[in-house]
Computed example of a mutant assay.
Amino acid sequence: MVFNEHQNFNQWWLWAILLVISVVFGYAIIQQEVFETPFGDKPAPTWVLILIVVLFGGLGLLLKVFTLKTKINSEEISFSFKPLVSRKYTWSEIKTIKVIDYGFVGGWGIRLATKYGTVYNIKGSKGLQVTLINKKQFVIGTQKPEVLKAYLIRLSETNTVVKSSLHNL
């Protein structure tokens, strides 16, 4: 019995914004360099336009690389926010867990020093809040809160350590 979840940045509006910005600035480069017509009343130098296209293209590539993977089984909770973080915690290290709606925490990605501790999320506002025995807290975002709750309840029926960790599911 294992819970697995793999998330990535696939919000259509995010990709639309990146595409529109890249197309507009790409058009500005072509207009200024090929047609030798300034783009706007106060045109930026072409190198600035190229830098903007490269930065937004790089941001798109970076967002494609970022993934949040969660795995929960009878022995541990593990997650990775690739390529930055990878963690594993055995059930004996965990004091409490609960599925929560943490609301908006200032964006997506890794959010430090929130009232929930560190929040690892790709989108949405639901996650698994984990409090460790050493009082450290963190939240792993999920797009499957109901499936996760049901899984944890089933797991707690056969694992007393998990059962003692469940908090207000």
Results as ranks from 00 to 15, higher is better:
F66Q: 10
W13P: 03
E36G: 05
A16C: 05
Q11A: 08
Q31T: 12
Q11I: 08
S22Q: 13
L49A: 09
S22C: 14
I72M: 09
L61E: 12
P43L: 11
A44R: 09
K69E: 15
A28N: 13
G60N: 03
S78N: 05
N10Q: 11
S78E: 14
E75Y: 10
V20N: 01
I50W: 03
W13Y: 14
F66M: 14
F39R: 13
I52T: 09
V53S: 08
T37I: 14
P38T: 10
S74R: 11
Q31A: 15
S74V: 00
Q31Y: 05
L55H: 14
E33P: 07
P43Q: 15
I30P: 05
I17H: 03
V20P: 04
K71R: 15
A16D: 03
V53C: 14
V34S: 02
L14G: 03
L61S: 10
A28R: 07
V23Y: 05
P43V: 11
G60D: 06
P43T: 14
I21Q: 09
L61Q: 10
Q31L: 15
L51S: 13
T37V: 14
K71S: 13
T37F: 06
L55W: 07
F25Q: 00
Q11S: 10
I72D: 09
L59E: 13
T70V: 06
K71C: 02
I29W: 07
Q11D: 11
N10L: 04
L14T: 01
L14R: 01
G60F: 04
L68P: 11
L51D: 06
E76Q: 11
Q32V: 06
K71I: 12
T70D: 02
T37D: 08
I72C: 00
I30H: 15
Q11M: 04
L59S: 02
L62C: 04
A28C: 09
N10G: 15
Y27W: 12
I29G: 10
P38D: 03
A44D: 06
I21D: 02
E36P: 00
F35T: 12
I50T: 12
L62R: 06
V20F: 04
G57C: 06
Q32H: 06
V54D: 06
I17L: 15
E36R: 10
L59D: 01
I77K: 07
Q11F: 03
E33H: 03
I72Q: 06
L49P: 01
K64I: 03
